[in-house]
Each structure stands twice: as C-alpha cells, then as structure tokens.
Write a protein that binds this DNA or RNA. Structure first.
Length: 563
RNA sequence: GCGCCCGUAGCUCAGGGGAUAGAGCGCCGGCCUCCGGAGCCGGGUGCGCAGGUUCGAUUCCUGCCGGGCGCACCA
C-alpha cells in the first residue's frame, strides 16, 4: 500500500496534531486559536533532516508568541511513541521543527521495493474512480503533426499515472468525422481521384494539399478499380469520403501504435448525430430555457454561465455546430459513468473551454468534473532554425517522420520534458543524437548498466540471496544513502505527478535518479566488494533498476538491457 | 481592445509562501591496471519592472513591459 516514507509523514502529522492538543490541554497554548494549515515537508537541504514542518510559524500569529517558543512547546508534548522511526527533532531557523529518522528506515524501504517489485509505488488513492482521458482527437483529414504528438505523449502518460494510482482509466479518441473539414477532405479526395485518371482537377484552395491525400485516393482505386469512375459524382464522393476517413483513421491509429499509444475507445462524432444525441441535447437546452433564436440560428446563452459570449447551436442552415455535438459528446461520457473528464487540447482550442463547461452546467452537470489541459504549442528546431509547419499546405513534419528520425523513446521523453503550459522547443538534432547530449540516453544508460551488473553476476554463477538475509546496514556511504532516499521518494512523486496531471515531474525524477545512480556507480565497486557489502549493494542496484523500469514504463519509454 | 499561458543562469527549462533557488546544453579543468567513460568530479552568472498582502514573496494579488494563443452560424 502506502510507502514507508508516506506512512512516516502521516504519522508525524498526526503526532503534531496530538502535541498541539496536549499543549492546549496543559494550557501552554491558547485554546481558542484556530488550527492553521501546516505542512510536513521534505526539506531540500539534508542538514535540515528528513521531514520538516512549518506548524510553529503558522501558529505564531494566532498565539501571538514567537515561533521558536511555540515550537519548543509543541516538542515538549510531542509523543515519539506515535512515530517510532523518528530519532530526534529539533528547532531550526525561524521556527521550523525538523525531524531526523533512524537510519534503518532506508533499509526498510529497500526491502519494501524488492518485495513489491514493479508494483512499488502503486497506490489506491484513486479509489477506482472512473476517469476518461481524451487526447489527440485529430481530424481524420491528414497525418499527425507535432502538436498531436505532444498531446499523445502527455495524454498517454497522464492516463498511465492515474491508472497506477488506482483510478479506472479509459483512453479515448474523438473522431471528427463530420462537418466542414470533412467536406474539404471530400473535395480534395475527389480532385486527387480524378487526377489519377489524367484529369486536370486541382485540389481546392481550401482543401488539403498533402501528398497523403493522393495516397489515399490511390488506395481507393487499388481497392475499387474503375468501378466509381462512371457513377454519379455525389455517390462517388460519398464512397471516397467513407473510405478516406477510414483510411486516415487507420493510419492515425497505426502511427500512434508505433508511438506506443493504444486507445480503449474510438468515438465517432457522426454517430452522435445519427443516434439523435445531439438533437436531444439541444432540446434539453431549450427546455432549460438556456437558448434563444436570432438571425435564423439557435443560440445558447453561454454568457449566462460564465462564458464570454453566447454561442450558436443550430446554424441558420439547420445544421448543428461542432459545439452542440461536443456538449452531447461530453454528456455521453457522463452517461457512461465517468466522474472525471480530462481533455488534452492544443492552445488553439482555448476558446472552446468556457463554452463547453457552460453547456454542461446548463444541463445540470458539474463543470468542475471536466478538466481541460491546454497545452502550449510545439516549435520544431533543426540546425538552429525554426521549422515552419502548415497542415493546409501539407508542409509539416509528421509523427511518422519524427519517429523515423529520432525514435520512439527520445520523442516520448522530449514531449513530456516540459510542463504542458510551457511552450516546447523540440530540437530535432538533439533528440536524434545517439550521444550523451541526449538526456533520454542518460537515463536508459543507467538501466543498461544495472542489467549488465546482473549479467556479470550470472556469469560468475552467483545469485542474490534472500533479501532478509542481506546486511543492508553495510550501506553507509553518502552516495548510497542519497540513492536510497531518492528511491523512497518515488511513490509520493508518482501521486503528485498524477494528481497534478504533470508527467514532466516524473521525467525530472527519473533523470535525478539516474544521476544519483551514476554517481554511486562511479565511486563504489559493486561486484568484487567485500562479500556482505557486495550483496547489500546488489540489493540497492536491484531496487534502482526496479524503480527506473517502472518510471520509464509510466512515460512509455523502454528500459533497455543493452544499448 | 478583452481573456488565458509564459517571462528564473549565455541557451532550453524545472521549482514554487519559508531556512544557501536547481538541471541539461554550451564553455574551462580533472578522473578508467577495475563491474558499460553513452559515465563521474570541480569551476559561473539568474527569479522582466513597480507596488501590495505576509513574521517571511522568486512563488500570492494589482499595474506595466515583452512573447505565444484565443476572441467564427470552423473544428
């Protein structure tokens, strides 16, 4: 379940509450003051102990006493029996109370890691709550670009993190298979189709110019021959479009698959229209009194629900907007039992957030159950120059090309290297480099080294004895202690990264962990150390490998045995 | 114009009410008779500006400046 470290943190927090109560009962602190917010944190500096609390400083004002005095009173009433791992506590700086743990807690953590194996760090805090993570949802009109790729890496890692924290996660892709852009796809396909038979039919100005559309047209011809050459235009276009959408979706699915991303649900927009779900949502909005007619269109009073302005639901030509369909889509998600909806969207969809939430609220749903991650855009660099991209002209780098250039591991690592609200400069040259400039290799190299150590061990016909018989107390060096402490952080790092929907925190963690391993490895011999020490160090190495593998898996990155 | 995101080291970015603000890259100098040198160790400068809240602000609030993205009967 919880890690030893988080259990100790909780125990300290409870003991502090107990000390506070006791001090008040003894009338050494005023009883009327409210208990302030306080944290039991992990200090940055090693000299400040293993845990630290700001409780006394937060109490300074309500008790009108100097924080160090308050800290002394709290410590007098602190019951060490309630957290047996605490060896001592002292008062430092402006009024921090610092806690120092008995050295054995680190060895206990190592045992826990080895016993739990790659389940170490898994938690149940999600309580099986049903979460829907929708990401990429690219239009089926072309290939995947860098923005889609970033969304893919982010969404998939967020889903993996939440799943590991005990949420029941569904990964979902919404297919925009209707509407204006599909008409443009149809016109582009028709032009390419006729070109294949020698006609001079240019792709419309606002069509999709990419060569992939011509490829799709050729695949259609390969399958249908000349059957559709002489059928009426509308019928041919319908067949072309149906084929085209399926072809594009198949390609998108395949690209994402080679990026290590697999969906549970592919949800079709046109199905929402066909089933009447869109119509029903519009009717419910009308019934709720949230709409009005104007200029021949049906409007939703979004501004009444916190959005900037009202929005059209049904255009004057009778067609429902994408906005109406998207409300219906999210209503559908709720009806499937999800209580937490996460969407990963590009910054260019920002304007859509407030009105979608407004629509859900008007229908009686809690808009806070929908959380939209607005991801800033990706700039691609090559040879120090920005690579300009335009989907319309077909002039852009695709996910397929990226994977060919830099490989899946580097691509996934780079896309979750930064926070989603930070612009991402993706340096193709750096990601391509099979060298030490490339951070993903640094982490993988640590894992390969560990694997190599166990290969060496096997060559000598040796094996690690049972964990309980290993004398872990022999691990006393500074590098060893730092490494174990980092391993002890892992479960809490995972929870923090999951709750914050911030996989880049895990990227940072795994890099630091690899760094501490390299530092340890360079200073200390593992195989060939004194027998007892060799075993203890092997346990440390084993545990490091377990955590590296688990962390990389959550990021969708491989942990190679050899490189 | 209005809204959202960002402004932290030469560059790309973490961090975020607390005790001495971090990493990578680049630059300089060291370290393998030994488990993978794709590594390790050492060396430097920094929170855009101005107010405010606070015992304490790089972090929160306001204004300004700079960059990005939105503000369609597109999706």
């Amino acid at each position: 379940m919880g890690s030893l470290k988080s259990e100790i943190r909780t125990a300290i927090s409870h003991a502090l509450h107990g000390a506070l109560d006791a001090a008040r009962t003894a009338l050494e602190l005023p009883t009327e003051a409210k208990i302030p917010e306080f944290v039991v944190s992990s200090p940055r500096e090693e000299q400040f102990g293993d845990f630290s609390t700001n409780l006394a400083m937060q109490l300074a004002k309500p008790t009108r006493r100097p924080p160090r005095d308050v800290a002394a009173v709290i410590l007098q009433h602190f019951d060490y029996q309630r957290c047996s791992w605490v060896e001592k506590a002292d008062i430092a700086g402006p009024g921090f109370i610092n806690f120092y743990l008995r050295a054995g807690w680190l060895n206990e953590t190592l045992r826990q890691i080895v016993k739990e194996g790659e389940e170490y760090g898994r938690s149940t805090i999600g309580g099986r709550q049903k979460v829907n993570v929708e990401f990429v949802s690219a239009n089926p009109t072309g290939l995947l670009h860098m923005g889609n790729a970033r969304g893919a890496a982010l969404g998939d890692s967020i889903a993996a993190l939440l799943n590991y924290c005990g949420f029941t996660v569904t990964r979902e892709f919404f297919i925009n298979d209707t509407g204006h852009q599909i008409d443009r796809l149809a016109a582009s396909l028709e032009a390419r189709y006729r070109q294949e038979f020698g006609e001079d039919t240019p792709v419309p100005e606002d069509g999709y110019q990419g060569a992939d559309i011509a490829d799709t047209a050729r695949r259609f011809i390969a399958q249908t021959g000349e059957t559709y050459r002489r059928v009426p235009g509308p019928e041919r276009i319908k067949a072309l479009t149906d084929f085209g959408i399926a072809d594009k979706i198949a390609h998108i699915s395949k690209s994402l698959g080679s990026f290590g991303i697999f969906y549970d649900v592919w949800f079709s927009e046109s199905a929402l229209h066909a089933s009447g779900a869109v119509q029903k949502v519009v009717e419910n909005l009308i019934r709720a009194g949230a709409t009005y007619q104007s200029e021949g269109a049906l409007w939703f009073r979004a501004s009444r629900y916190g959005a900037e302005k009202d929005e059209v639901l049904i255009r004057s030509n009778g067609a429902a907007t994408y906005f109406a369909a998207d409300i219906a889509y999210h209503v559908d998600k709720f009806s499937r039992g999800f209580t937490w909806l996460i969407n990963v969207w590009g910054a260019d969809h920002y304007g859509h957030v407030a009105r979608l939430k407004a629509g859900l609220e008007a229908l009686g749903y809690d808009p806070d159950c929908l959380q939209v991650i607005i991801m800033q855009l990706v700039r691609l660099f090559q040879s120090g120059e920005v690579v300009r991209m335009s989907k319309r002209t077909g002039d852009f780098v695709t996910l397929d090309e990226l994977l060919e250039e830099v490989g899946r591991d580097a691509a996934r690592y780079f896309f979750v290297l930064r926070g989603s609200d930070s612009h991402l400069d993706f340096d193709l040259d750096l990601a391509r480099a099979q060298s030490m400039e490339n951070p993903v290799y640094y982490v993988q190299y640590a894992h390969a080294r560990i694997a190599s150590l166990f290969r060496q061990l096997a060559l000598r016909d040796k094996a690690l004895p049972a964990i309980d018989s290993v004398r872990l107390e022999l691990l006393a060096a500074e590098e060893e202690e730092r490494l174990v402490k980092k391993l002890a952080d892992f479960p809490e790092e995972v929870v923090d990264a999951a709750i914050d929907l911030a996989p880049h925190r895990l990227t940072g963690y795994v890099h630091e962990l690899a760094g501490l391993f390299h530092s340890f490895y360079n200073v200390h011999r593992v195989i060939g150390a004194d027998p007892g020490l060799e075993e203890a160090r092997l346990v440390l190495v084993l545990a490091t490998g377990i955590v590296l593998r688990r962390a990389l898996a959550l990021l969708g990155i491989s942990a190679p045995e050899k490189m």
